[in-house]
Design a binder for these strands. Sequence first.
DNA 1: CTTTGCGGGCTGA
DNA 2: TCAGCCCGCAAAG
Length: 503
Amino acid sequence: MPADPTQDADSLLSYGMKLTWDINDPQMPQEPTHFDHFREWPDGYVRFIYSSQEKKAQRHLSGWAMRNTNNHNGHILKKSCLGVVVCARACALQDGSHLQLRPAICDKARLKQQKKVCPNCHSALELVPCRGHSGYPVTNFWRLDGNAIFFQAKGFHDHPKPESKSETEARRSSFKRQMASFYQPQKRSSREPEVGSTQDCSGNLSSMPALEATELLEMTGDTSFPITAQPCPSLPNADVHRVTCDLATFQGDAVLTFQNYSNPSVYLPRPPWSYELADPVGTSLSPYPSLYKDSSSLPDDIDWVHLNSLQYNVSSYGSYERSLDFTAKYHGWKPTHGKPGLEERVDYGQRQAVTTCPYYNPELPCRYLPVPPAGARALQTVITTTVAYQGYQHPALKHSNNTQEVSTLASCTYAENLPMPIYPQALGPPDAVMQAASPLETGPVKLPGDCQVLRPTLAFPQETDPSRTDGTDAWDVCLSGVGSVTGYLDRTGQPFNFNSEDF
DNA sequence: CTTTGCGGGCTGA
DNA sequence: TCAGCCCGCAAAG
């Protein structure tokens, strides 16, 4: 492999993170010579510097539903996260996924949106607010300065990703096309090709046939509902690595998510869990083929029942993700939590330590651990170990000879927003980039786009609630088993996100 | 109609 | 003073 400057350890930092600046500085770094690649899903206390020519940066786009917030500073655009809209009953969709709608940005539209019902179970919708910034919504700041657009994010999103804007738009347009074809069947023999031809590798679209279009109309009255809201993992290069999201292969799940949130009118605090890949020994290749279980056998698998309670957002990625979860167990996924404010001081590579909750470990009781002493935090580090998943092929990939796709998925073990500065050399063909992300790598490997595994400490205001200090709630969370844990995990986000970001 | 950005104004720390 | 948030307005799609 030719030398790639971005393989340097310190290149793991975004260009924006390499420089010392704050969005509020009187003087920003002048005339940056390098820019970061646009990140659709920034998460954490990150800074990026985009080219002022970057269209998405110009539009201050984000995958997260960010609304404008007045900070009384005309030079700095501030946006805060609206969270995600979910089914209050957390019903499982046909494919096992859950609704994760994009909150309408406009207040009025959002109120209308919340008055609607889940298209799947007709129960109420619930807005899960973002509280990832010391109890407040995550905020994003944009500042145009010279030839650069400076971006700074504060806080870690403590909820699943909503549909991205592009996904929402794609779904709506697809829905409209489907409607057109549905009511004009004589002109179009089948609407399937319409769905299949959709560019967006989204569960929303791939599962459209799960419900009849007329049914959708009756249930929703408009086109604002995705059939499944969990964005399907797509690959960094949608053209080369497009994978059909085979959600239909996932039938065996009985995940009772969100069961602690049955009242749609109350936004119950969520346990301060986050997940971090703590892989003390897991750098070796996993014996995956022997571990992977076909989805058809899973419901009868007791081990799987246990694993299922540990897994992270099982719904969207189907059996593929279940295998990842299986791997996660073997490689020490740790739920973590933190306290408000601490992350303020943390930058990439210095994310604070986290407390491990051993509930994923069948040998240990499930306990909510209190905030650890600062010293303990200091001992913890971000793990950027590559975990080998390549033994398993996503069902959608089984028919492909492109094993590179598998390694692409398998290698995605890095924190979301893994900073990747954009140097001219780094803008090569995606294939080359992905090859660089071989699971055989022993060190951190950059990935284009956003891959999310490491979850830094989250900040929750309720963590200071005295009623929680005895861990009772945590017991509830843990011992309610599959439901609560995965429910929160669902809300927390997806560790394996492969967002289709343009290259 | 919705999104987006702007800005006035209020509140609490 | 700062941050968060509510509101209304206007432009744009």
